Amino acid sequence: MKDTLKKAATTTALVGGGLALWTALAASASEALVPADGAFVDVPGARLHYVDTGGDNPVIVLLHGIYGQLRNFTYALTGQLADHRLIVVDRPGWGHSTVEGDHPPIETQARMIADLIDALGLDRPLLVGHSMGGAVALAMALNQPSKIRGLALIAPLTQRMTAMPAIFRGKAPPEALRGLAAWTVGVPLTTLTGPAVSKQVFAPDPVPLDFGTRGGGLIALRPSSFQAGAAELTDANRALATMVPRYGAIRLPVAILYGRDDELLDPVSQGDVTAGEIPGATLTRIDGGHMIPVTHAADTARWLRTAASA
C-alpha cells in the first residue's frame, strides 16, 4: 500500500512538474512573439500598456474583449482610422498591462481606464469596447460619465448570460483553485484547444493565419491570462446584474454594432434589448461574426467614424 501511494505521489509530481514546465515555456514564447508595442502609464492599482497612434482629434480609446489584447485592434482596424488619434489599451490584467493583487472586477477596470484618460490628458474621448470591453465601457458610462463623450460598442457583452458559452466551460475553476489550475492544466488546455476555440469565436469568418502574432492571440498562453479569464467569466454576471437596471440613466450617445452571424454573443439579447434600454441608443448590424474589428475592419471603421462624428 505504501509503495502504491509513493508511486502515485511520484507520478503526480512528475505530471505536475511537466505541466508547469509546459506552462512556463508557453508563456515565455508567447511574450517573445507578442512583445509590448507601446508605452506604459501607472494608475492606482495598475500599470497599463497602451499604443497612441497620434493623429488628429477627436480622440478614441479602444478596449478589447476577454482573452484579447490591443493587437486585436491594431491588426486591421486602426489602419482604417488614421485621421483620428487612437489610444489602444491592454485592459487591466491583460496583454502587457499588470495589476496589483487580484484581477479587478469590471467596475474597477472602468475606474482604471478613467484614470488613464486623466493621466494622458485626454478631453472626453469616445470610448470603444469590444465584447467584454463593452461591459467595461458601459461601467464607465454609468460611474464616470464625465470622462467620455460617448460609447461605441462592438459585439458587446451587455446582459447577464443564462449559461456560459460552451467554449469557455472548464476555464473558470473556483477561485481557490485558479492559481494551481493556471500553472498546471490551464495553459496546456488552452494550447490544445486554441485552434478550435478561435474557429468558433471568429465563425462564420475564417481565423487569419497570422492572428496569433499580428493579432496578439498567442499572448493568451500565459497563466496570468487563464486567471484573468476565469475571474471575468465568474464576475461578469454579478457586475451586469447591478448595471443593467441603471442603463436607463445613461445620457451619453451610445452606438452598438453587431455582426449578423455572431455565434458567441446573441445580437438580439445583447444588442437589440440593450439598445432599447438606453435612451437614444442605436444598433447597427453588418455581415460577420464576433471578431468583426479583425475580419470586417473597413465596415467597422465606417460605422465607428459615424459614431465619432455624432
Rank of each mutant, 00 (worst) to 15 (best):
L126A: 01
T162D: 14
A13Y: 15
P245G: 10
L14H: 11
T295G: 01
A203T: 00
G170D: 05
R91I: 07
T98Y: 11
T213C: 01
V15F: 15
R47W: 12
I60W: 09
L5D: 06
V294R: 08
L126E: 03
L116M: 05
A13I: 10
T4N: 14
Q200V: 12
G259E: 11
K2I: 08
Y50D: 10
V61C: 12
D102V: 03
P156C: 04
L142H: 01
H290C: 09
R124P: 04
V128Y: 05
A307I: 03
A307Y: 00
I286Y: 10
M140A: 04
L21D: 10
M140G: 00
S30E: 02
L177M: 14
F211K: 03
P156H: 05
A231L: 00
D262Q: 13
G101H: 14
Y67L: 10
T295Y: 00
S198H: 15
I256F: 00
E232I: 02
P223H: 07
I278K: 13
Y67I: 09
P208Q: 10
R178K: 03
A182G: 11
R214G: 04
I148H: 06
D52M: 03
R169K: 15
L116A: 00
N143G: 14
N143S: 14
M291W: 08
K6S: 09
L122Q: 04
G18R: 02
G217L: 07
T162I: 11
G45I: 11
L122G: 11
L86R: 08
S225V: 02
L122S: 13
G18Y: 07
A230F: 02
G68K: 03
V136C: 09
G101F: 14
P195K: 06
G17E: 09
R169M: 12
G216V: 07
I87R: 11
P245E: 04
V197C: 12
G280H: 01
L283I: 08
A310Q: 15
D118A: 12
W22S: 09
P105V: 04
L240S: 00
P293G: 01
D37T: 13
A76D: 00
Q69N: 15
L265I: 04
A32Q: 15
S146I: 03
A310M: 15
A241K: 13
D3I: 14
G288R: 09
